[in-house]
Computed example of a mutant assay.
Amino acid sequence: MQHASRFTFRVAAPHDAIAIRAIEFEAGQRFVSVGMTGIADAPPMELELVKRKIDAREIVVAVDADGACVGFVMFEPQPARFYVQELDVLTSHAGQRIGAALIEQVAQRARAQQVMQLVLSTFREVPWNAPYYRRLGFHDIDEADLDAALIARRHAHIARGLDESRRVFMRRDLA
């Protein structure tokens, strides 16, 4: 089995856009196994959105020895934190610490800008969602502690049809 050290991590380039969308779509198929077919059926992100995020240098990809993208993390720098928008790794490469290494890439970028917090929103019960992020040092944010920006994001999720009752916001403080 390969481990994350066998992969390289770099800011996504324009030629990675198609692979990023394919990884997102393939990773979404895992949700069929937990009865969440709506996510599996959803189309990948619009190509224009992916290109905008690449231009903004807000996607990091994991690349194997052959130069193929096997995972990515997409994030949004905010004044007091970096918001992790999406983390996907090809199912064929699961369990190799690639996701953990991608999160660490975001953490390094945050620290470099003196930003000491990562935040994300994920499904509470899906094994590779909240339980996985807890193993990476994230903690649930209590409803009462959600700020205006996170509440706005929750409303946007609801508008997109996500079941927010099954989701949780999480944060990881960076030392």
Score class of each variant (00 low, 15 high):
M1W: 08
M1Q: 07
Q2T: 11
T8N: 14
F9G: 04
F9H: 06
V11G: 11
A12H: 05
A12D: 03
A13G: 05
A13R: 12
H15P: 01
D16F: 03
D16W: 05
I18C: 12
I18T: 11
I20S: 01
R21Y: 02
A22S: 14
A22P: 01
I23V: 15
E24T: 00
E26D: 09
Q29Y: 08
V32L: 14
S33G: 10
V34C: 05
V34N: 02
V34T: 06
T37L: 08
G38H: 07
D41G: 04
A42S: 13
A42F: 08
P43W: 01
P43Y: 00
M45D: 07
M45Y: 13
E46L: 09
E46R: 09
L47F: 13
L47D: 11
I54M: 04
I54F: 04
D55W: 10
D55K: 12
D55F: 04
E58F: 04
V60K: 00
V61E: 02
V61M: 00
D64H: 06
D64V: 06
A65D: 11
C69W: 03
V73H: 04
V73K: 01
M74Q: 07
F75Q: 03
P77H: 03
Q78G: 10
P79D: 09
A80H: 09
A80F: 12
R81Y: 12
R81L: 13
F82W: 13
Y83R: 01
Y83N: 04
Q85H: 13
D88A: 08
V89S: 02
L90E: 00
T91Y: 15
S92R: 12
G95A: 06
G95V: 15
R97K: 15
A101Y: 03
L102T: 01
E104P: 04
Q105D: 07
V106L: 01
A107F: 04
A107S: 14
A107P: 06
Q108C: 13
R109G: 13
R109Y: 08
A110C: 13
R111I: 09
A112S: 14
A112G: 13
A112V: 09
V115H: 04
V115Q: 08
V115S: 09
V115M: 03
M116R: 13
Q117D: 06
V119L: 03
V119K: 01
L120V: 10
S121H: 12
S121I: 02
S121D: 07
S121M: 11
E125H: 12
P127L: 06
P127A: 11
W128K: 03
P131G: 02
Y133H: 07
R134D: 15
R134K: 14
R135Y: 05
L136A: 11
G137F: 00
G137R: 00
H139M: 14
H139K: 09
D140H: 04
I141S: 00
D142P: 08
D142A: 10
A144G: 07
D145R: 11
D145Q: 12
D145L: 12
A148I: 05
A152L: 12
R153T: 05
H155C: 14
A156W: 11
I158D: 03
A159T: 10
R160N: 15
G161I: 09
L162S: 10
S165Q: 14
R167G: 02
V168R: 00
M170I: 08
M170N: 09
R171S: 08
R172Q: 15
R172H: 05
A175L: 15
